[in-house]
Structures are given as structure tokens and as C-alpha cells.
Nucleic acid binder design. Structure first.
Lengths: 348, 348
DNA sequence: TATGATAACTAACACGTGTTACTAAATCGC
DNA sequence: GCGATTTAGTAACACGTGTTAGTTATCATA
């Protein structure tokens, strides 16, 4: 019984004639010995590592509180499992070696890259495009030909702020989710500006602050806003994580939400509905994003024609109580939330 | 100029004579071509994949809200980066193929396994032990010889509950962080029981509920407790994530924290200090856990003698306001938190 | 100049698999 | 009974690297 026979049997190669007896003998032996083909040898000959890299483009210390990562990972693994793919994770921190992830690609340690949260100033990303390395962006990047799976951050943010305007607010503060090197932060800020403009409200930089992914930054920036001269009756915080910190800063100053300051978040993280008051926020279809991204990657790798290289998923404005638009009684509010929540689809 | 010369130069092999001119020529060419040695070929010949697997032992849908994972990943990557190691992530869900992760090991796709949150009924783990595969548990497992990095869940839980007792509470409810198939859940429950026992309080199963990692389960189980006949004035929720849900259930019923029900959590997740009121909780040195675990793995792989195969890190009870022991004014509370927080070291 | 030592480089093997081309045995058609 | 076809199995190469042993050129020494 040769090595070849074993390979043929274990890989279940079609249209090949192996007697059932031999086949069974091979299976038995493999089972008995706990034999599993060596991944490196297999990768070497097949030119496929069967590993996809998920690259998180943000500072290392921002990973801890990033609630976006987990559902993405879960979604990816769900799909990968069905294709015998593995998931490798790495951080792309501008403070580290710039081309670290390019090396992963060139060494063929990974077959493809899912790139989350691209930065506008990431030069290495362009290298990937030149190399023609299979890449899917989770998030957008102006002027790239790479595959993209994302939401319309601008439209989503606009709908959130428009909602506040609809409720009568004119002085609306904004805290971005991150610095403007991150494309999502730029887009969400732009949505804020668009909503103001459409309502004929002048954009006032004194009401805008820049966060950096963390709860702390939400807290600090809200304190900063409150310490400023310009008054506001509502705030759009472009990340639920930061909204949590912002709310803490508000109640620390004795300000009630939504009575004194109406609050709207972004992301609809799991805790948003359990905040006090429950947070009005933009729902991000994180799970869908992950599924679409991973399926696009699989298609890219299998050489199939990729039908659409630009997927923009719908978001929804989930209206809870932090914006002051909900009027269900406090006691029963959460019980009826599913019915009580009003949803505005942003991309119809 | 042969392939061998290139290999020698690029790997910076010591005690080998290569003329500076040749050396430079090699470096230049590599730079120009963007050459990076093929990982699979390297792994095949060196018998090292340079990849460590982080295995998350919990149900797939519990990954989303598990705030423990991110800081662990961050800590691991910090250490791995210095050793040219990569991080591969996978979920060990009892509903999937049991031996999926054993295959990763046998295929030598990964050099070692960091196993987070071992379940008592995981049979495959014993296989790893038999195989002698480099493994470090993050969390404990009775009767294993594997390396362990963990905290003393029992002592930590005990100190939290003892604190409530010290404040005068006698009817103390408990919601576990997970089902009792997870060793950490068992230990935390045991800590709760020990504290009661030492104070001469009878253990009442009517005051105990079992969570499952999610905010929802905290919410549901607290509602369940409140709907029960047995009254309580305090609750120990063995996970901050669940505590968030529990607090929502309390305020939904018009119960104030800590006036009506004192609350103590576990984990000291980033949001704990920003809850309203700030959550008294047990601080888990997550970052340390990750560092110690990864360093232990590196030592294991380098064949060094591993000095200690069982590292138990200290926890601290962080006293904020949800337990009713803090008396700083509400307005200034967070500002003075760092000084105002009282800390009890659990393992001296 | 002959001898040995050293510097600089290379040919050849090993790693464990997938795959192709080939051989031997068995079966079939007439 | 004999060539043609099908069935079952194998030898040999390729994948891209690290490494060992070996081969020239260069140079110092007696």
C-alpha cells in the first residue's frame, strides 16, 4: 500500500479506482494512528495555506474595548469552518512595522486578507492592490479598486442626526468615533454635517470633538464639550462605546438623558439596549458584514467571477429612549422594547 | 550567487563568512523584489509553523459579547510580535466537531495551543495531554498536568461576597457567569458558597441562577430572581457582562442600586467604571494573564525548562458604588474615583 | 615553492504532501 | 485463446526552503 494510495483515499479524489477493501484499510489505519496530513507540506504543494488573515487596523491598545471585533470573528469563523479555512489575526498599528502584514501575504502564510478599518494614510494597502493579493476591505477607502464590504456611514450618521433635528434640536454636539485618519470617522462626521446643512443649521466646530475608540475618550470629550462655551441640547456620538463614556460624563454633571441632553450613538452594540436610558443608535449589521466579507473572500480565492466587488449593507436607526422620542412608561419599557423600538431604514 | 547564499544572508546565520559585498547584493535584490521566504516551505523544513492557536472554548454565539477575548488577544499579539509568531483563532463549540482543534495540532498547523475557558467535559483536551502537545490553559481544569495560567476564581468570588456580607447583607442572590460545565463558573459559585458558610448563612438554591456569558442571560436571570418568592438585598453576578443585564432588570422594576439591591460584578471590564452607578467588581488582570500565558508558551516551545507550570495571578476587589459602600458625592464621584476606589487584594 | 589554513561559495539532500505518468493485473469481447 | 480495455496500484517529480558536506579560490607561513 503506497503513500499515493493513502493520499487518494483520504482526499476522496473523484474518478479514481480504489477497491473498497483497500479504501477501508486506509481509513482504519488513519483512524488508529490519528493521522492528519501535514499542513505545511500540503500548503507547499498546493500553494494554499488555507488561512485567511483578519487585519485590525487600529492602535494595539484600542483592541481591548473594540466590541466590533468579536461578532466579526464569529461571523468569519462560521463561514470558514465550512470551507476548511482558518483565521489568523493581526493588528496593524501605525506604530509597528508598516509592512508587517505585507510580509504575511508575500510569505503566503495567508491566502487572503480581510482588512478591517482601513486608514486613509495606509500606504502598504496600495501595495496589496498592486500585488493583486486577494483582499477585502471591511470599511471603505476612497480611490481603491479593492473589494469592499461596508455600510454607508455617511447616510447612517445623517439619519441619526436628522432624527435629533426632527425632535427640535438645533444645537447638536458631535463626538467622532476615531481620528479622521480612519475613513469611517470621516464619513460619519460628514453625515453629521450633511444633516445640519439640510436643516439650515450652521456647522460649528466648537461643538465637535474627536474620539479614539475608547470609552475614556467618550468620557473625556464629553467633559470637554461641557466645559466649553457653546451650549447644546443633543449629542451625536459616533460609537456606542464612546456614548457610554459620554453618558457617564453627563450624569456626573447632573445632566439627565434625554431631558437635558438627548443622546444618539452608533453601532448598536449589545449593551446599547441595556443602558439607562436605553440608547438610540444606528444598528450595524455586523454579522452580515462578516458573512458577506468572508463569502466574498471565498469567491475571490476559488477564482470565481466575483459578481459584486462593492457591497454596501443597510443600517437602521434604532429609536430607544436616550433621544427623548420614546414615551413608553419606564417600568415596562424594556419588556415592550421590540415593539416600542422604532426603526428607520437608511438605505431603501 | 546561489540559493544557499541568499538563505544564509537573509537568516543572518552566525559564524558564517560572507563578503560584505555579496551580503549587500543579496539584501538589495531581496528589497527590490520584495522577496519574503515562503512560510510553508520554511515550516516544512523547520517543523515549526510559527503560529500559536488561541482556542476559545465556548458556544459560537457567545463570542460576540465576550469582552474577555479582546484584551487577551492584544496581550498575546504584543508578546508574539517579538518572537515572529502569529496568532490563529478558533472556537471550540461542543456543537461542532469535537476534535477539530486536535487536527490543528496533528497537522502541525500550529505549534502550540492556548486554551481559554476549558470545559470540564472536554474529552479532547486529554488527548492533547497524551500527545504531549504544547498547551497552556487559561483557566483551570481539575486533574490536569497541563500548564495553567489563571486567577483563583473561588477566592476572588469569596472576597466579593464577603464584602457584601460585611456591609450587612444576609440575603444575597447569585447569578453565575456560565453553566457549571465551565470550571470558572463552578469556582466562582464555590466562592459564593464559602463566603456564606464562613458567615454562618445558609445556602439557599432559590437565590442562585445560572447565566450563559450574555447580557441577556443576566437580564433574564435577574428578572427570574425578582419573580421568585425569596427576597434579597444584594446580588453577586459573576460577570460584569451579566451584571449589566441584571442592573437593567432591576431598574426596570423600579429598584435602585445600591439602595434596594446592592450589586457586585466580576471581571472589571472597561465599562464597569462607567456604569450608573459605577460597578463594584473583581478586577481580573487580563493583560497579565495574556502575557504570562504567551511567555509560558514561548518557553515551552523553545524547549527551555519551564520554571513554573501553574501561575495563579492576584485579583482585586474594586469597590465602587454599586455595593453601597462608597459615600463620595454623586457629582464628583468619577473624578475622584481613582482615589475613592478601595481595593482589596485577594491573594496576599 | 609547497603546505596548510581560511574565506567564499555551492551541490545535494531532506521536509511531507499532491499529482502525473506509468505498470501490472484482471476482465471482457469475439 | 488473444488482443483490447478496465481496474488497482506505484514510482517519481514538484513545491521552496534550511542545512550539511564539499569544492574552489586566496593567502599566509615555513
Amino acid at each position: 500500500m503506497s503513500r499515493t494510495t493513502v493520499s487518494l483515499v483520504l482526499n476522496n479524489v473523484r474518478d479514481i479506482k480504489i477497491s473498497p477493501a483497500t479504501r477501508q484499510k486506509v481509513m482504519d489505519a488513519a483512524e488508529r494512528l490519528g493521522y492528519v496530513p501535514n499542513a505545511a507540506a500540503r500548503a507547499l504543494v498546493s500553494q494554499r495555506a488555507q488561512i485567511i488573515g483578519l487585519l485590525l487596523s487600529r492602535k494595539s491598545h484600542h483592541i481591548s474595548t473594540d466590541a466590533f471585533i468579536n461578532p466579526i470573528m464569529q461571523g468569519l469563523l462560521d463561514v470558514f469552518r465550512q470551507h476548511d479555512m482558518c483565521l489568523l489575526i493581526d493588528i496593524v498599528d501605525p506604530d509597528h512595522t508598516k509592512e508587517a502584514y505585507i510580509q504575511l501575504a508575500r510569505a503566503k502564510r495567508i491566502d487572503g486578507i480581510l482588512f478591517s478599518g482601513p486608514r486613509l494614510d495606509d500606504e502598504a494597502l496600495k501595495l496589496l492592490e498592486v500585488d493583486g493579493f486577494p483582499t477585502v476591505l471591511i470599511g471603505q477607502l476612497p480611490g481603491t479598486k479593492l473589494c469592499v464590504v461596508d455600510i454607508d456611514n455617511c447616510a447612517a450618521a445623517k439619519s441619526a442626526v436628522a432624527h435629533l433635528i426632527r425632535l427640535g434640536h438645533r444645537q447638536i454636539a458631535c463626538i467622532t468615533n476615531a481620528q479622521l485618519t480612519y475613513s469611517a470617522a470621516v464619513e460619519r462626521l460628514r453625515g453629521y454635517q450633511c444633516a445640519l446643512e439640510e436643516a439650515g443649521i450652521a456647522y460649528d466646530p466648537a461643538l465637535v470633538r474627536f474620539g479614539d475608540f475608547t470609552i475614556e475618550s467618550g468620557y473625556e470629550q464629553m467633559r470637554n464639550l461641557l466645559a466649553g462655551q457653546t451650549k447644546f441640547t443633543a449629542a451625536f456620538v459616533a460609537s456606542d462605546t464612546l456614548a457610554l463614556g459620554a453618558r457617564a460624563a453627563l450624569s456626573e454633571q447632573g445632566l439627565a438623558v434625554p431631558q437635558d441632553v438627548a443622546l444618539v450613538g452608533f453601532d448598536d452594540l449589545p449593551f446599547a439596549r441595556y443602558m439607562d436610558p436605553p440608547l438610540t443608535t444606528v444598528h450595524l449589521p455586523v454579522s452580515d458584514l462578516a458573512h458577506r466579507a468572508s463569502e466574498m473572500m471565498i469567491a475571490l480565492l476559488s477564482g470565481d467571477h466575483v459578481p459584486c466587488d462593492r457591497v454596501i449593507l443597510d443600517t437602521e436607526l434604532i429609536i430607544r429612549e436616550s433621544c427623548g422620542a420614546s414615551h413608553t412608561s419606564t417600568v415596562m419599557k424594556r419588556k415592550e422594547e421590540k415593539e416600542g423600538e422604532r426603526i428607520f431604514r437608511n438605505n431603501l
